[in-house]
Amino acid sequence: MAEPFQFELVSPEKLLMSEDVEMVVVPGSEGDFAILKGHAPVMSTLKPGVVEIQINDKEQQRIFVRGGFAEAGPDSLTILAEKAIPMEDLDADILAQEIQNAEEDVNDAKSDEVRAKAQEQLDQLEQLQASL
């Protein structure tokens, strides 16, 4: 049984979640990582993916996030996400829309650098779609 710590999930439109949880798995842009209480301070950008929140032994919540970053300290974790949708509300349509947006981004990209980034996002989204 892990010790709880303060977790907040914020989107530009509202504060989605603010409670004590045991563990959070964050889809970092350089790989997923889990945060427990007492984690060294880390700041990481996010890739499109699912945040898994272990609230306590029984309860678990999964939230889809896209774009943003996570800021972890010894006793708190804050995720700022541009878009956050609880997994229950996420269906194939929303994901398909996201993928379409990402495809447009790839096509609109002006420089190779931007295109590479957009392509990366698209790949990650497609991976997610496949895993659903």
């Binding site: 060294a40 880390v42 700041m43 950008t45």
Partner: peptide, 10 residues
């Protein structure tokens, strides 16, 4: 803070 990726990239 440990930055992931680099500060400038973030």
């Amino acid at each position: 803070y440990e930055y992931e990726p680099e500060e400038s990239e973030i």
